[in-house]
Every structure is written in structure tokens, then in C-alpha cells.
């Protein structure tokens, strides 16, 4: 997201459109990345229910993944998952894994 200059910003500390927090990529804050093992997942929706940032991606009543743009890596999903299908992996290691 391109940051606005002081001349482009609205006057005062005002946010004009509601629900625009989606534009803020809190995923950059993450130290640990939750990774779902889809073989263990039963789609019970506990992770979706507990996630404080609405970062569990769901389609047709099935968990399909995690929105890493916004997931802060709090680990609540991993703790609450009854099937222990979510593993918290160090973000740095996960990225190195991806780079391979």
C-alpha cells in the first residue's frame, strides 16, 4: 500500500470509509506462522470462531487456508484446534522453506 503524503491526508485524524482496516497489512507483525495440516482438519470451524482477526479463509463451509496478509500469528487457532491440525512455525523458517 502506498503511503499518503501529508498533503493527501484528510484534515485531522479522520478515516472516511468504514471497514478499511483490511488495507492495513498486520501480517507483517507475525513471528510465528500457523500452518494447517489439511489431512487432520475436520472443518469444525473452531479456528474460524476463535481467530481475533478473521484471518481463517472459508469457502463452502470448508476451511481453505489462512489470510497471511492479516494473520498476526497469535497462535489461538493452534491452541484451540481439537485435532491439533495447526502448527506454529517460526516465520523466518517458514519463509526460508518457501524460498527453497
Amino acid at each position: 500500500m502506498r503511503l499518503k503524503s501529508w498533503k493527501e491526508l484528510e484534515t485531522g485524524v479522520v478515516i472516511l470509509e468504514p471497514g478499511n482496516s483490511v488495507l492495513y497489512r498486520t501480517g507483517t507483525w507475525r513471528t510465528f506462522r500457523p500452518i494447517i495440516d489439511m489431512e487432520k482438519c475436520t472443518h469444525c470451524m473452531f479456528c474460524w470462531l476463535y481467530c481475533p482477526d478473521g484471518s481463517i479463509l472459508v469457502k463452502d463451509s470448508k476451511v481453505i487456508g489462512i489470510d497471511y496478509e492479516h494473520c498476526k500469528g497469535c497462535g489461538i487457532c493452534a491452541r484451540e484446534c481439537p485435532k491439533k491440525a495447526v502448527t506454529m512455525v517460526e516465520e523466518v523458517k517458514a519463509r526460508m522453506e518457501e524460498a527453497k
Binding site: 503511503l3 499518503k4 503524503s5 501529508w6 491526508l9 484534515t11 485531522g12 485524524v13
Partner: peptide
């Protein structure tokens, strides 16, 4: 830090 200074600048 990304927006505070711009608001101050105003």
C-alpha cells in the same frame, strides 16, 4: 510511525 509525522506536519 508511518502516519503520525504526516498528521503532525498538517
Amino acid at each position: 510511525w508511518d502516519y503520525f509525522f504526516e498528521h503532525r506536519r498538517q
